[in-house]
Amino acid sequence: MNNILWGVNGLMPSSLVLAQMNLDFARIAESIPFILTGINVTLQFTLISAVLGFIWGTILSLFKISSFKPLYWFGMAYTSIFRGTPLLVTLSLIYFATPQLTGYNISGFEAGVITFTLNSGAYISEVIRAGILAVDRGQAEAAMSLGVRYKPLMLDIILPQAIKNILPALVNESIALLKDSTLVSTIGAQDLLRRAQIVGAQKYVYFEPLLLVAVIYYVMVMILTVASVILENQLRRSS
C-alpha cells in the first residue's frame, strides 16, 4: 500500500536533484505519449465527476432549502460528513469497502468517480443553496401567483438565475476537482500523475515525468481560470 500511495519515493532526495538540475527529457521521450494519454483519463474523470456532482449537488441544495425537515436534516448531515472527512479517506473507504460489502470488484476509476461525485456534490450544494437564497423572493412569489408548480418553478425560474450568479464559484469547484483528481492515482487509476509515477519507476527518473505533468496540470488549471474570468466579465456586462 505504501508503495502504491507514494510511488514518488524516489523523488525524496530533492536537494540532490536541485543541485544537479541536469534535466534530460530524452530519457523519457518514448514514454511521453503514454503519459499524455493520462490527460484523457484525468479530464474524463474530472468532467464526469463535475457533471454528476453538479446534478447531485443541485438535488442536495433543494433538500437543504426544503421545509420538509427530514430532507433538510439529511442534506445538512450529508454535507457536514463529506466536508469533515479527508477525501483520501473517503476514496479509500469506497475503493476497499465496495468489494468487501458487495462483492463487486470496483475499478479505481469507478471508485474515484463515485467518491468525487459524492464529495463535490456536498460542496456544490452549499454553493447552489447560497445562489438560490440570493434570488429575490419575489421571483418565486410571482411564479406561484401564476400557478406555476414546484418543479417548473425551480427548473425554469429559480435555478437559471441562481446558477448564473454562482457560475464563477462552480468553475472554481471544477478547478479544485481537477487538482484533487490526482488522488485517484493512489488507487491505481491510470491518470496523469499515476502514469508519471509509472514511467519514473521504470526508468529510474522521477523529476522529468513529474515536472512534465505538473506543467500539464498548471496549463489545464490556467485554461479553466481564464475561462472563468471571461465568463465573469461577460455575466457582469449582461446584467
Binding site: 421571483q139 412569489e141 410571482a142 411564479a143 400557478g147 406555476v148 438565475q161 446584467s239
Partner: peptide, 26 residues
C-alpha cells in the same frame, strides 16, 4: 392561483426571459 392574478409593487418580471416569454410562460 391560476384563477387569481397578482401584480406586485416591484413587478418581479423574470429577468432571464424576454418580455414575450414572460407573458407566455405560465
Amino acid at each position: 392561483r391560476q384563477n387569481v392574478g397578482m401584480v406586485f409593487q416591484h413587478f418581479h418580471l423574470f429577468p432571464h426571459m424576454t418580455v414575450l416569454k414572460n407573458v407566455m410562460y405560465a
